[in-house]
Design a binder for these strands. Structure first.
Lengths: 209, 209
DNA sequence: AAGATTACCAAGCAAGCGCTTGGTTTGTAA
DNA sequence: TTACAAACCAAGCGCTTGCTTGGTAATCTT
């Protein structure tokens, strides 16, 4: 048990123990983190396997011992982040009962994913979709469907309780755009906290009580 | 004056006459339209100059008679679409006086840009920013600032009239994301009109009166 | 300690990339 | 008709790309 390593959340650690995602301090985990950062900064296409190798301190050819090809690295980045964030959302939902509170929990959760440690991977998930071959897209889509169902069912609840007016499917899509776009302008070091931003986003979606 | 050509809006035609943008039926104009379509579908990096040549029916090398390099084509796509849409927004604003109506006019205008004929170019403007070299980014940024100022000043007006609660800068950013994301899900052939969608987006931003 | 497996390096190949070159065709105007 | 420039073609150059290969070092298992 290494000492100087960043503490994982309980949910994250559980996924590592189950072998569903790679530990962030493993060889593969560090590769995926580096890949996510590079893919976000320069885009998937502009990032070469030589860039990736250099980022983790190995030769470019050695990457293909871990993954069969470059696209598989992109796919792994996406898969891991969506699996992780689905778990985090489930956990956040289970801690709230009021429909409006649940919506806020989802917004907060998604913002923290986008603006926090997994932000690079989340950005890649949103912006590099086209670079996946169709087969991979279908696989990731299955995972996204699970994630989106959490959103939709929560928004339906909120609508039934009268706090939401708009059609849940359309509201979710508008929110998806509004939240994912924050990666292009929000800066942690500014004087707007993620929590404040989450509450502002909530006012877009929910009627004042 | 060719006969069988799609009629341009008066604002668009004026820009062509001034030489600010290329006529859509000129050689350069058709190249830019094809480039926008390909860049949107496959991404800038995955689109080769051979793809571009084939799309307009010339050899790839002949492209460089019109533009000095591939990046200049991307830049031209972005410049033309933002200049055009800035004009369209100005025209839309001049036809409305009520602050809430002005906000709706901007939303409608942006949605029509994103979902209509210039949609490919607008998408490229949003998603291919990283592929511009820094010098080009700064040039385009000047044009974007003009465009964004129309939005911000209109939202400030709306806030002063009491119809908007949120900080205009943040509201604009959330709206930018929500509206630009529509390109990923909205389909014209569905049973939701752009006008309906615009009104829904308006309810996100504006308090019921 | 022995053996097996995993992780890696050094070198380089085949293909595709943006772009250049030298020359030919097409359009325009006197 | 002639002159000239703009538009284009055919060919290919130099470079970078993702990936492969054959071998070596490190790590794990028993």
């Amino acid at each position: 048990m290494p000492k100087h390593q960043k503490q994982l959340s309980a949910d994250h650690q559980a996924l590592v123990d189950q072998g569903v995602v790679n530990a962030p301090d493993s060889a593969k985990g560090r590769l995926l983190q580096a890949a996510a950062t590079l893919f976000k900064e320069k885009g998937y296409e502009r990032t070469t396997v030589r860039d990736l190798g250099k980022a983790v301190g190995i030769q470019s050819g050695s990457l293909f011992h871990h993954y069969p090809n470059k696209e598989a690295i992109l796919r792994a980045v996406m898969e891991e982040t969506i699996i992780l964030n689905t778990e985090l959302m489930k956990a956040a939902l289970s801690q709230n009962n009021d429909p409006a509170e649940k919506v806020l929990a989802l917004i907060r959760c998604e913002l923290e994913s986008i603006l926090g440690d997994t932000g690079a991977a989340m950005t890649v998930l949103v912006y590099e979709w086209r670079s996946l071959k169709e087969e991979s897209q279908l696989e990731i889509l299955k995972l996204r469907d699970i994630y989106e169902n959490l959103w939709i069912s929560t928004l339906i609840e909120a609508k039934e309780s009268g706090r939401v007016v708009m059609d849940p499917a359309i509201l979710r899509r508008l929110l998806t755009g509004a939240l994912s776009w924050t990666v292009n302008w929000y800066r942690q070091e500014g004087n707007l906290s993620v929590e404040q931003l989450a509450k502002m986003a909530l006012t877009l979606a929910i009627k004042p009580n």
